[in-house]
């Protein structure tokens, strides 16, 4: 897993500063758009803990995202300092229950098993009163501890999402430099050899699965907070697939890949609907081009500058 080089970190930092100043110059609509991209980036980043770092491709991730979002609603919207840890805990516990079962399988079968567990979570909210109906529902926003005017909302949630993403990204950068981070990368590279060396591969994979689940829950929480809306659709497997596309587009080998990919995907979707009546077609063409010409994703653009962690 490549952590961005120093110039790369500077570019990311400058972009974050640019986003942080948006309340001074951007429209509410643009801030909402970037806010959505930040939440998507957080979600894709949570999946990168499995895909890029550990070599596990999971389709259950949206289930944990949705669980985090629904936690806000199911708790009856207490203050945010309760909902945020609760969302991470709920998603983390779900991952802890599903992980040991799903991780008995490998490769394609792991993909299918996580698809099945993800869809179980989806139907738990789609087909029962738990989810408040198949069309979703508007929820009461948890209190942030200070009053936010309607006009101030886009700016506040933009900054909040930016802060959470920055903290999670920074934390994962650190994690990748620890023995745990290196062991996960070892598993991605050669699982059997890691076991022969004396690493408890199953336990390490479970740690990654639970961490990724909890972070997806955090992303779901931020989504519920930002949109004040939850629906079973949040848990659907195609959301997981979309996050995988973001990782692929941004760069599967780089920790910041999912962030770049999420912004690129949101930009492509917006540009697609501005330029054409068939935005999905534009998306498809861009993905095809990305797979053909950008094997390392957007993060691989500056190949000579890339450094190893």
């Amino acid at each position: 897993m490549i952590v961005a080089s120093r110039p790369g970190q500077c570019v990311l930092g400058a972009a974050a500063l640019g986003i942080a100043t948006m309340p001074l110059w951007a429209s509410a609509w643009h801030m909402q758009l970037v806010s959505a991209a930040l939440v998507a980036a957080l979600f894709a980043l949570s999946l990168q803990v499995l895909v890029g770092a550990t070599g596990l491709v999971s389709l259950a991730q949206a289930g944990f995202f949705g669980l985090g979002a629904y936690t806000v609603h199911l708790l009856g919207s207490p203050p945010v300092w309760i909902t945020l840890p609760a969302a991470m805990l709920a998603a983390g516990v779900a991952a802890l229950l599903i992980g040991p079962l799903a991780l008995r399988t490998k490769g394609f079968f792991f993909l299918m098993t996580t698809l099945a567990f993800g869809q179980m979570l989806f139907f738990a909210f789609h087909d029962t009163p738990l989810g408040g109906g198949t069309d979703g529902l508007f929820i009461v926003r948890p209190s942030l501890g200070f009053t936010v005017s309607r006009a101030g909302r886009p700016a506040v949630f933009l900054l909040l999402n930016l802060g959470v993403l920055a903290i999670v990204y920074g934390g994962l950068c650190w994690l990748m430099s620890t023995m745990l981070g290196h062991a996960l990368q070892g598993i991605r590279s050669n699982e059997n050899r890691m076991a022969a060396l004396g690493h408890n591969v199953q336990r390490l994979k479970l740690i990654a699965f639970v961490l990724a689940g909890a972070l997806a829950g955090l992303a779901g929480h931020m989504s519920a907070l930002t949109d004040a809306f939850v629906s079973p659709d949040l848990l659907g497997w195609h959301r997981s697939a979309e996050a995988l596309l973001m990782i692929l587009l941004g760069g599967i080998g780089a920790l910041h890949g999912p962030i770049l990919g999420a912004f690129a995907l949101v930009a492509i979707q917006e540009a697609g609907s501005l330029l054409s009546d068939r935005p999905r077609l534009v998306e498809g063409v861009v993905f095809l081009a990305a797979v053909l010409f950008l094997r390392q994703g957007i993060a691989g653009w500056r190949l000579p500058w890339r450094t190893r962690p």
Partner: peptide, 20 residues
């Protein structure tokens, strides 16, 4: 890095210590 992964598997270190 390969040798380090071998060394850290045996050593009873916390997983959150630096890999270096």
């Amino acid at each position: 890095e390969n040798a380090r992964l071998a060394a850290q598997a045996r050593a009873q270190f916390g997983l959150l210590q630096t890999a270096a």
